[in-house]
Design a binder for these strands. Sequence first.
DNA 1: GAATAATCGAGACGGTACGTCTCGTCTTTCC
DNA 2: GGAAAGACGAGACGTACCGTCTCGATTATTC
Lengths: 172, 172, 172, 172
Amino acid sequence: LEASLRLLRQRGYAAVTTDTIAAAAGVGKQTIYRWWAGKAEVVLEALTEQARAVAAPALGSLDADVTAFFASTFRLLRGPSSTRPVLKALMAEAQLDQAFEERFAAFVETRRTALRALLLRHAPPGAPVEAMIDMLFGALWYRLLLGRRPLHAGFARTLGALAARGLAGSAR
Amino acid sequence: LEASLRLLRQRGYAAVTTDTIAAAAGVGKQTIYRWWAGKAEVVLEALTEQARAVAAPALGSLDADVTAFFASTFRLLRGPSSTRPVLKALMAEAQLDQAFEERFAAFVETRRTALRALLLRHAPPGAPVEAMIDMLFGALWYRLLLGRRPLHAGFARTLGALAARGLAGSAR
Amino acid sequence: LEASLRLLRQRGYAAVTTDTIAAAAGVGKQTIYRWWAGKAEVVLEALTEQARAVAAPALGSLDADVTAFFASTFRLLRGPSSTRPVLKALMAEAQLDQAFEERFAAFVETRRTALRALLLRHAPPGAPVEAMIDMLFGALWYRLLLGRRPLHAGFARTLGALAARGLAGSAR
Amino acid sequence: LEASLRLLRQRGYAAVTTDTIAAAAGVGKQTIYRWWAGKAEVVLEALTEQARAVAAPALGSLDADVTAFFASTFRLLRGPSSTRPVLKALMAEAQLDQAFEERFAAFVETRRTALRALLLRHAPPGAPVEAMIDMLFGALWYRLLLGRRPLHAGFARTLGALAARGLAGSAR
DNA sequence: GAATAATCGAGACGGTACGTCTCGTCTTTCC
DNA sequence: GGAAAGACGAGACGTACCGTCTCGATTATTC
């Protein structure tokens, strides 16, 4: 059923309706509502499946690890699967639908957890890790949502450098 | 007409439709479409009016200035005028409507400009100011959009500290 | 299983769906479809059981016999078992479902046969008995389906009188 | 808009849905619901328009007038405009929908009024005119709804004869 | 008493009509 | 002649019910 990712790729999120998904999957509309609360949840689940593919980065310096983490994330977003506009649309949906916001936040949290683990390997105790995560993911989402500014490898490197400098030796 | 901020405060963004605004303002729907492209633009304009109030921060260290900048921004968002849910809804609209995204980006850019000016007063030449702006505003939006995590003065202080450390002496 | 008459009485025909009957009878839906073609057939069978109770009228004049026939029929329809709305609903179903129409017509025919036997006892040869049956049962159904007009004993008497006058001495 | 009679003729009542009518009329679905409560009301109105065509019968004997009245009615029902199945379907709808029943009864009442006027011209005072109307229209509907039995001119003649005999000289 | 078959309850499924909602445009009516 | 009022075409939404279709579990039948 999640093969309705096809629709996302071909026609974009806006053209995806519950009817469309049902028709494309050869399925009754009710069947979709039986399992999900709406199209947003379907797409989110489809995306979650896909997101499992992002590899946890190897071990190096904090700078290098953060750089690698975001570089691979950026690569996925620029990829051929139209992930970026879909993520934008899901974030939009999360703003408009209270119930969906919680599920979406949980999805985002999984990524956050991965980054937190990475930072904690390097950061000194007491460093403002949570705030740094907010800033790093914040920068990602900020560019993702509003950006004309591209998400390229150079930006990943800058994030890595700033993260390293921000956390180094700070016994806050 | 912008007195349709009343609707936002009282009933939330979801209850605001072009029909609703028109009815509340005692105005024909067509009249609204004559002057704006849709409800999002009306709300954006109403908000812009309101946003002018945010004071430019005083002069101190980079740390202190950034802290003050975000502290006052946070104060506005926590304020009684329901600014936060409205900003969320506008960001959502920006994701769904290509045309509106540009106008909304321009609105955001005005805030960005203010922060940039502030940072440039303190940052050494060659410092990654743009990336730092992305991170600072990113953190703001990230918490604003998804956050269970609150936007309080403590977070502003942390942002100030991290900004100072990130930009200090970096001749990147 | 026909104890789904309970549903008819309590909630009306509209609330009776195949699912409802199945649930109320503590039975799988498929089991119902194994034995009947749909809810209408179930109800019809339940009703047939109940209709056997209507007594064949005694012997008197044509007038008296017809009066008695309809008086007892009317009594059943006004009875506590909600027969009237159910008959209405079945007639409706018969209009919408070709297959069911035939079964329902057969059910109606049993009543028609009873009345025909009664009329033939009194009518002179060549009298338009069939047309008179159409008119008598027609009047019944007409009031049953559309009637604000009630089905009371007085109407039965009028029908008896008109039947007698219509058939008497007519060698048409 | 009532040119959705076309749909009735071409595809039958069952195939007529609110969507279908809207599409065929080049009209939004909402527009239909703005003016009618559902497809039944639309069809009823369309039919009412058409029914105005049935001429009031000329003046003769009671027998002749009643015969003429039903002969012309039967002719319409056998006509090319599929009136018969539509009437059946509307009667069905009236049984299932309380609100529609009232409107449909009003429609039927207009025909009843015409027949009443006709009978009153001939019947002696005190004759059971209402009951006779029930029987005559009853016979019509009975055959219409259930009948294998056809609605032809001969039946109209029989109805005329029985009506005359039933009402003649009866000072009930 | 175990193995096999038939029947059942439960309920998911593909379909499809329903009536509601909101959008942005078009039309009428009044000041 | 411009604005309020609101009807309009369009089309997605989520719900309801239909009749079909698997599933195990439970009987009933046979060896």
